[in-house]
Each structure stands twice: as structure tokens, then as C-alpha cells.
Design a binder for these strands. Structure first.
Lengths: 280, 280
DNA sequence: CTGAAAGCGCTTACAG
DNA sequence: CTGAAAGCGCTTACAG
């Protein structure tokens, strides 16, 4: 069967393709009676314009590419849901890709999205450096960053004040009397860099020496448990852990629980995102 | 600027459109030297075929529509991630829509997806009845159900044995000595119906009368806390709660914590999905 | 107010 | 092995 085409509609209404198109798009002057016939035919045939044909003419796809690390991190699930909602209301559709924090996957996704001719891109970049993203910059396709950005790249971005995030978390723990504070950080991206800066600033402001052994990098949220476990095996000396995100905190709590380390009595844990499941 | 077209490639390579197309697609016989020239030109111009033009010819979009309730429920985030991964490897791209458990939104999303000419659909249906989905059934576009299905609709679906789920959870609680077991269920969909059947069967098998006051329906994961709170305000008599999904369990735990009710001493809680954040 | 024609970017028979 | 032509489904000047 397939979809009805404009030609089918025109034929049923007894008019030309051009007239059918005008009637359907409310363009130019079309006789009331003619328009009515066309609309009825379109309805009878369940006509819906082929977006491929339209896109070919207009050079537009009404499609936005979304590239985040993974929607398995509820933070990004929320971001994507919000984007989808607003865009749907505007008649746009989203194509979703995941980088899983891997630069190569990110490049590949950008290639895919551009090949799909998206009208724009919303990206949570894996790295804070624009390496290997020439394709994107040279494409002339508009893009904005979300959650993270790239210093020096001239485009809009929606982020929080990550340096303040690092400071707030660290200050809080210091105020609670902690001086040996682990930082389980993400890597490469701007949020990671800025939160770490906030962390270091706070330590410095309180005269606490910064111990590199306390800062651990996690490539990917799901590795947090392993990284924390390793630190514990190594006998890391700390009384608190500042986690880059809630997802990592779950892994940390698990590593701690596995060793019978009580939270917060023996180890305080703080993290960011304020995700629903953390509010129990 | 815009994208280079086949015409640009052909011109640079000094061949016709047809030959350029053949060279690029490894179709028919093309002289080695000619093919090389075309490939070089394509590379030099960063040529990538316009999927709109291709789709118009082939009647195919290499796009699959995914319709779930919301990726904010980590269960569906995992489902979508898996689908995306497999499809990406096959050169397909996904368009994501959310129904938020609302039949009207589901219908609208299906309309949108079909209008986009997706090659197929993967749907977690809101209802177990095929009401209002004529559009889908008449479209001839292949679709499969995931997580939930519609009895009587002839298509493939990927689900778990929901009746067994209901039975296992209930039996477990009964084995622990519980007889007043609340069931915080989802609504309308097949999983909800089947899990409830399993719940009722188990009660019956153990000679426990089924009390309708113990079964509460939640329209939407985020309402679980409220529904549980209401039940508690009403003075519901129960020693255990069986939650339809992990997301709901979080709400339940919160409602319990707010009232100082200890888990599991005063109220046992069980739920399904085995999501990462529940494993702490 | 309406229709014939061109063209968006591609692929595919059909001839050479 | 290669090119000219038609056509996928639409929109938009251009004529009437």
C-alpha cells in the first residue's frame, strides 16, 4: 500500500499538483471550494506530506541531533527529556546518539548526525579540547553545548557554575571537619576540570595540602565502584569522598558497603545532580 | 556553503552523475582509474550522500522510531540504549519519542513517527488494548512491542514473564511471613495486568484473602510517593509492599522514611527491574 | 485562481 | 565501461 502522495490527493480532488500543494499549505490564493475538495481528499487518503521530498526542497529536516554520553546516567535522561519536549512542541524530532565518554564514538556520532542532515546539534562534549571535531566546526551546522563546553569555541552553551560546584562540595566537607577528602572525578571534560579547580581552591583556602593520591579519575560512571575499591585496597587515607555525580556515588556506596565501611560515620559521601533516586 | 553534492563530485572527477554514483556505490562495472578519481573527489569534497534524496528513491529512511513512556525511568533508558547500539551498528538511526504513560501522547507520537516515514517502530505500549491505534495497524509499517504487548495483536514482542514476576515477588513476601501485602501497580498495560494476576494467584494459593484496598494504581512512576503516602494516611493495614518497578520503590521508601517507618522491620519493600542504583 | 514545468539530490534501467 | 534520461514526492516561480 504505502503512503498516499500529493498526486493521489490532486487526482481525487480533480486539481493539479500545484493547486493541491497550495491548498494544503495555505499558500497563495485558492478558491474556497477548491481548497475544501483538496482537504477532503487529503483526509480521505490520510495524506501526510513526505518529509524527504519536503526536506530536499527546503534543505531542512526539522531534525535536531542530540549527543550525550549516555541516557543511562539519569542526569542526561533528564536533559534529553527536556529537549525532546520543547522540540516536539515546535515540530522538531530528535535523533539520539551516545558517546559513552569516548572521543572516537563522539566523532563517529557527529559524522552520523551530519550525514543525516540534522538542522542543528546539541552536544555534551566528551573533551574540553576541540580535537578531532573539525568536521563539526567546518560543517556550518549550528550547535550548542549542554552540561559541558569547550573554552574558546564560539557557540552557546548551557552549563552550571562547575567551579562553584567543586567549591561548595569541598567547603561543606571541610566545614564538617574533614581534611582528607577524596575526589572521584570525571575526566577530560570541562565540568571535571572546573570542579577540580574548585576543589583545589577550597583546600588551599583552608591551608589543606592537596594530595594527588586523593584525586581519582573515572572514565565512565559505571567504573566508580571499581576505582573506589582500588583506592580502598591501596589503603587510601580519607574520611570523605566527593563524587563527580550521583551515578558515581552509587558505585562508591557499593564499594564501601562491600567492605563494611559505614557512611557517614567512617566515610562521608557527597555528590552532585540531586537525582530523584538519591532523595530517599 | 552547505554539503557537496554528487554533481560536485562528478564534475571534479570529470565524469557523469551516473558514473559517480556507480563508483561510490560499487555498483556495476566501473573502470578502476575512474572509480579512483571519483573516490578521491568525494573525499576531497567531504561528500556524504544526501539521505533525503536516497530515501525518496528507495522508499526507506534507515530510521527506526522508538516510543517508550520515558527514559527518565532507568529501565527504559537501558532498553533504548541497547536498541540504539544494535541499530547504529546496522546503519540505522533512532528517533525517540515519549508517551509519559498517556494514551493521547502515544497516539500523537505514532502519528509523528509515521509522518517521518520511519522504517519500523519499537513501542512500549501504554495500554494493553489496541484502542486508537488504527493509524499504526493500517500503516503497514512493521512494529514490535517491548516490555509490554497487546494480546491479540499479531506482531513480535519482547517481554518477560510478568505473571511469574507477580508470583515470585508475592511468594517471596509470603514466605517471609507476610499476609497483608500491598501492591503498588502500574496501570492499563499488559505488565500491570499480568503481575497483578500473579499477585492474586499467589495469595489465593496460600489462602490469603485478596483485599482491594491493598492494591493501588500509579499512573506514572513519579506518583508512587504520593500514592503510598495517601495509603498510609488512610491507615492502610500492611506489613509489606510489592512495587511494580524500582522507580516506584524509591517513592515508596521516601514516603516511609518521611513517616519514620523502618524498612524492612515495620514495612518490607520489594520491587522489580534490578536497576543499578538499587544495588547499594 | 489554476496548471505546466523546473528542480531539490540521488539511483537505475536503457542505450550505446 | 559510460552517459542521457526518467523519476522518487514535493514546492515554487512563471504563465495564463
Amino acid at each position: 500500500m504505502g503512503y498516499a502522495t500529493l498526486k493521489d490527493v490532486a487526482k481525487m480532488a480533480g486539481v493539479s499538483l500545484a493547486t493541491a500543494s497550495r491548498a494544503l499549505n495555505n499558500r497563495g490564493d485558492v478558491d474556497q471550494a477548491t481548497r475544501k475538495k483538496v482537504l477532503e481528499a487529503a483526509k480521505a487518503l490520510s495524506y501526510t506530506p513526505n518529509p524527504l521530498a519536503r526536506g530536499l526542497l527546503s534543505g531542512t529536516t526539522k531534525t535536531i541531533g542530540i549527543l550525550v554520553t549516555t541516557i543511562q546516567n539519569p542526569f542526561y535522561a533528564a536533559v534529553v527529556t527536556g529537549i525532546e519536549k520543547v522540540l516536539a512542541a515546535e515540530g522538531y524530532t530528535i535523533i539520539l546518539c551516545s558517546s559513552h565518554e569516548e572521543p572516537a564514538a563522539e566523532r563517529e556520532a557527529i559524522r552520523t548526525l551530519l550525514a543525516r542532515r540534522v538542522d542543528g546539534l546539541i552536544i555534551a562534549p566528551v573533551q574540553s579540547r576541540p580535537d578531532g571535531l573539525e568536521l563539526l566546526f567546518e560543517s556550518n551546522v549550528p550547535f550548542v553545548f549542554v552540561a559541558r563546553y569547550m573554552p574558546g569555541i564560539d557557540t552557546d552553551y548551557v552549563v552550571c557554575d562547575d567551579e562553584a560546584v567543586g567549591r561548595l562540595a569541598t567547603e561543606h566537607l571541610i566545614a564538617k571537619g574533614h581534611r582528607r577528602i577524596m575526589f572521584l572525578n570525571s575526566s577530560r571534560n570541562s565540568s571535571a576540570e572546573l570542579r577540580q579547580r574548585g576543589y583545589e581552591e577550597s583546600l588551599k583556602a583552608h591551608g589543606i595540602p592537596m594530595d594527588p593520591a586523593l584525586v581519582r579519575t573515572v572514565q565512565n560512571g559505571t567504573q566508580a565502584e571499581e576505582v573506589m575499591a582500588t583506592a580502598l585496597e591501596e589503603g587510601v587515607q580519607a574520611t570523605a569522598v566527593f563524587c563527580f555525580c550521583d551515578e558515581m556515588a552509587v558505585g562508591v556506596l557499593r564499594a564501601l558497603a562491600a567492605r563494611g565501611i559505614r557512611v557517614p560515620e567512617e566515610m562521608a559521601v557527597i555528590s552532585c545532580d540531586n537525582l530523584a533516586f538519591t532523595a530517599v
